[in-house]
Amino acid sequence: MSIHLENFKNNLKLRLDDNPQLHGFQTFKKTLERDYFSEVSIRICFKEAAKTENLVIEMDCNLDLLEMLYHLQKGTWGGNLSEEEDLPPNSSFARALDQLQELNEISIDVEEFSLFLNDCSIIVKKIYSNSIKDQLGSILSTIAEHYVYFTKGLSETPFEIYVPVFEDTIPENDYTLSKIREADNQTKDYFGFWGLYFDSEDDAVIYDLSNKSIVSGDLYLLNH
Rank of each mutant, 00 (worst) to 15 (best):
M1Q: 08
S2M: 09
H4I: 11
E6F: 07
E6I: 14
N7A: 11
F8E: 01
N10H: 01
N11V: 07
R15M: 07
R15Y: 08
R15L: 15
D17E: 04
D18T: 15
N19T: 09
H23T: 13
G24N: 08
K29L: 08
K30V: 04
L32R: 03
L32V: 08
E33I: 11
D35M: 06
Y36S: 06
Y36A: 06
F37D: 12
S38F: 04
S38N: 07
V40G: 05
C45F: 01
A49H: 12
A50M: 03
A50P: 02
L55A: 11
E58S: 14
E58N: 12
M59Q: 13
D60P: 00
D64P: 04
L65E: 03
L69I: 09
Y70Q: 15
H71Q: 14
T76L: 04
W77R: 12
G79P: 05
G79H: 04
N80G: 12
L81P: 03
E83M: 11
E85K: 13
D86A: 15
P89I: 08
P89D: 07
S92T: 13
A94F: 04
L97N: 06
D98M: 12
L103F: 00
N104R: 06
N104A: 04
E105N: 09
I106Y: 02
I108N: 02
E111M: 14
E111H: 12
E111Q: 06
F113H: 06
S114N: 13
C120Y: 03
I122Q: 00
I123Q: 10
K126L: 00
S129F: 14
I132V: 13
K133C: 08
Q135T: 13
L140F: 02
T142K: 07
I143R: 02
A144H: 06
Y149V: 11
F150T: 04
T151Q: 05
L154G: 00
F159A: 06
Y162T: 14
V163C: 00
V165D: 00
F166G: 13
F166H: 08
D168Q: 10
I170W: 03
P171A: 12
Y175F: 10
L177S: 00
S178P: 05
K179E: 02
K179L: 15
I180M: 10
I180D: 10
I180P: 03
E182L: 12
A183V: 07
Q186S: 14
Y190F: 15
G192T: 11
W194H: 08
L196Q: 05
E201S: 10
A204L: 07
V205R: 03
I206V: 14
I206M: 01
S213Q: 15
V215A: 02
G217R: 00
G217L: 02
D218E: 08
L219P: 05
L219N: 05
N223G: 07
